[in-house]
Design a protein around this nucleic acid. Structure first.
Lengths: 354, 354
DNA sequence: CTAATTTCCGTTACCGGGCACGGAAAAATT
DNA sequence: AATTTTTCCGTGCCCGGTAACGGAAATTAG
C-alpha cells in the first residue's frame, strides 16, 4: 500500500508576511514588473528560495481572465477522409481545454496548392494566436511560417509529419512512417513466401507523391528486399474520383495477373478498391490498407479488407492541442518533443472497440 | 475554415441580478442546499434554463480547497507483473488530477486470498474516500463491498473485470475478454488450417482459474470450433515460480508432439516459456501471448514471441481515475458506463512506440 | 531651502463561488 | 395577541493572485 502525498503550498500572502512587505510588492517581484527597491527584491527572493513558491493556478487564472486561442492548420477535411478524422479530435480537445480558457480555431487549406497554404498561414499570423498546431504538407512554406512563429514567440506543434530541419517546435505527434511500411509488409506476408504483390496507388501520386506515402513505400520495399526477395511487386494507378476507371484498372490487372493474392495501398484510400473486390470476390485475397476511415472500417468488418494499420490522427491532434494548452497554462513542456505514436493493427475482431 | 467559438459565461452574480435575488440564494439553488422557497427556486431555474450556466471552475476550486481522495484497490503489483503496469497509470493520473485537488491512495491485496481482499476493503471504507477504483477478482466479496459504497454514496469504477450483477458503478474499463480469445485464435492461425495447437496454462489455474482466463479460453475454443474444427488442442500446465519444472514440461511435450508449431497462453505470463524456446528454438514456431509486460515485450522484440494482445491496464486505471475525478469535480458522468477498450496487437514492428 | 520629480510601496477593488452568520418575514404555538 | 419557531434570504468574508491608484519618502531641480 503506497500513498501519493500532498504538499502544503506557500501563498503570496505568506511571503508578504514573512518579508514584512505587502502582497503588491511581492507580486511586482514575481512578475518582474519593476518599481521595487533592490533590498525588497532580495528579501522576497530569499524567502522564495527558501520556502519555494508555486502560484495557485486557479487564483491566477481567475484573476487573469485570459482567453487564449490555438490555431490549427490542416488540409481541408473532406467528409469521410483522413483529415476528417482529425476534426473529431479537435472537438474533443476543445471541449477538454475550454476549462482553461482556451479556444481553438481551425484553418484549413488545399493540400495540393501551396498558395492556399501560404494564404492560410498569413491569416493565422494575423489572428495572433497563442499557439499553433500544424500538419506540414509543404516543407518550404512551413519552414517560412514557423520561422515567423519563432520570432513572435508563438509555440507550435507538428502533427502527422514534421519538418526535416531542426526546428523549435514544442512537440511532434505522428507515427514512424517508414516503419509503418515495414510493418505493413510483415502483416501482408504473414511469414509466407509470396511471389507477387499488388500495390495500388493513386493517380495524383504520380505527379506529387506525398512524403508519407513515399516513406512508407520505402519501408515496404526494404522489408520485401530483406525478407522476401523473390517477390514481384506490381503497381497500378487508380483515380480517387473516377470509380468506373478504378474498376476497369483492377479488372484489367487481374485479367493479366490472376494469381495475385496480396494487395496493399499506402494511403488511406483502400476503400476505393472495395466496390470492385466485393463485386468480383477473389478467394484467399489478403488486403491491407491504412487508417481508420469509416469506409475502411466497414470493409474490414465485411471481411473485404483483412487488416488496417491505423495512426489515429484524431489522437495526434488531441495530444497536440493538449500539449500546447499545458504549455500555455502551466508552462509545462512535454518530456520528449518527438512522439511517435502507436500504430494500431485493426482486424475484424478488434475494430469494434476502436 | 470553421471556428469553435467561445460562449460568454453567465456568472452566479448575473443570475442573482436577473432574478432579483442574492448570490447566496442562487448558490443554494445550484447546490440543492435547501432553505429556498419554491418561488425563488423556480425563478433561478428558469434563468439557468434560458441562459445556461456553467460554474467557473477556477473560482469554485479556489473557494473550495477540498482535498478528495480516490482509493484504488488492486492485487499486489509484483514487479514486472500485469498489475505492476497499472501502477504507472495510477502515477500518471495522480499527476494529472492533482490540479483538481485530488489525491490517490493505492490499496493492494493478495489476489489468491479473499480474506486479504476483505481486509483491504474494510481499510478503504474506514479511510472515507471520495471515490473508489476496484479490480474485482472476488465476485461475492466485491458485491458486498460495492453495496456498502452505494449506501455511503461513494462512486466507484471497475477496471479489468466487472461484476455480473447489475451494479451502480459509475463506469467500467476493460477489454471484451471473450472476444480477446477469439481474436487470439484468428491471429494464431493466420488463415491457415492447423492440425495441432498447444495451450500453456498455469498450475494455479487448475484449482481456481480466474474469470478472464476462462472467458478468453472459451472465445478461443469457439473460434477453433467454427473456423478450424479439425484441430487438436493440447494443454500443458507450468508453474509460475519453478522455471526448471516449466522447462521440463515443455521438453516432455515437444518430445511427444514434435510437430506442433502454434502455441498460446491466455494469461500474461507468456514470458515463462521464453527461456525454453530460446534455448531450444523451433523454426516456424508461432507464439501468441497477452499483455505488454516488460518481459513479454522483450521476447517480442527478440522474435521469440510472434504477437502480443495487449489490454494496457495502465490506460484502464488512468481512465477510471479520470472518470471519477470528472464526476467528483464537475459532476460529469461518462456517456457510456461500460467501456470496452481497444485490444492492441503488438508485433516486433510496432512495439517500440508502445 | 522650497518645489517638482522619481522611486517605491501599501491599499484596495476586483475575479466567481462557497458558505457561515444573523436577521427579517412568515408560520405555528400558547 | 404575544411569543416562539421555522422558513427563507441577504450580507460579508474568504480563497490567492492581479493590477490600478495614489501617496509617502527619497531625489533632484530651481
Amino acid at each position: 500500500m503506497s500513498i501519493f502525498a500532498r504538499v502544503e503550498k506557500v501563498t503570496i500572502n505568506d511571503i508578504a508576511r514573512l518579508t514584512g512587505l505587502s502582497k503588491g510588492t511581492v507580486d511586482r517581484v514575481l512578475h518582474n514588473r519593476g518599481e521595487v527597491s533592490k533590498k525588497s527584491y532580495e528579501k522576497v527572493m530569499a524567502v522564495i528560495r527558501e520556502k519555494g513558491y508555486e502560484p495557485n493556478l486557479y487564483a491566477s487564472l481567475l484573476a487573469n481572465k485570459k482567453h487564449r486561442v490555438i490555431a490549427i492548420v490542416l488540409p481541408h477535411p473532406e467528409p469521410g477522409s483522413y483529415w476528417d478524422l482529425a476534426v473529431s479530435g479537435i472537438e474533443k480537445a476543445t471541449e477538454e481545454e475550454r476549462q482553461f480558457g482556451i479556444e481553438t480555431t481551425l484553418y484549413t487549406y488545399d493540400e495540393f496548392r501551396a498558395d492556399s497554404f501560404r494564404e492560410v498561414c498569413a491569416q493565422v499570423l494575423q489572428s495572433q494566436p497563442s499557439g499553433v498546431v500544424i500538419a506540414p504538407i509543404f516543407q518550404y512554406e512551413t519552414q517560412v511560417f514557423v520561422q515567423e512563429l519563432g520570432t513572435r514567440q508563438i509555440p507550435y506543434v507538428f502533427v502527422d509529419t514534421k519538418l526535416d530541419s531542426p526546428a523549435g517546435h514544442l512537440a511532434f505527434y505522428g507515427i514512424p512512417t517508414y516503419k509503418s511500411g515495414y510493418l505493413c509488409a510483415d502483416m501482408l506476408l504473414q511469414g509466407e513466401k509470396v511471389r507477387e504483390v499488388l500495390v495500388v496507388r493513386i493517380m495524383r501520386d504520380k505527379e506529387r507523391q506525398s512524403d508519407p506515402t513515399i516513406l512508407r513505400r520505402a519501408g515496404f520495399l526494404d522489408y520485401m528486399r530483406e525478407n522476401n526477395p523473390g517477390c514481384t511487386i506490381r503497381s497500378i494507378f487508380v483515380s480517387p474520383t473516377d470509380a468506373a476507371a478504378t474498376d476497369e484498372a483492377l479488372s484489367a490487372f487481374f485479367a493479366e495477373f490472376p494469381g495475385v493474392r496480396h494487395l496493399v495501398m499506402f494511403n488511406s484510400r483502400i476503400h476505393l478498391i472495395v466496390p470492385y473486390l466485393e463485386r468480383y470476390p477473389i478467394p484467399g485475397m489478403r488486403v491491407i490498407g491504412f487508417d481508420n476511415l469509416g469506409a475502411n472500417i466497414k470493409a474490414l468488418e465485411n471481411g473485404t479488407v483483412s487488416m488496417l494499420i491505423a495512426q489515429h490522427p484524431e489522437k495526434q491532434v488531441q495530444k497536440a492541442i493538449h500539449t500546447l494548452s499545458e504549455y500555455m497554462v502551466f508552462q509545462r513542456k512535454p518530456e520528449v518533443a518527438d512522439n511517435h505514436m502507436h500504430m494500431d493493427l485493426l482486424t475484424r475482431y478488434n475494430v469494434e472497440d476502436y
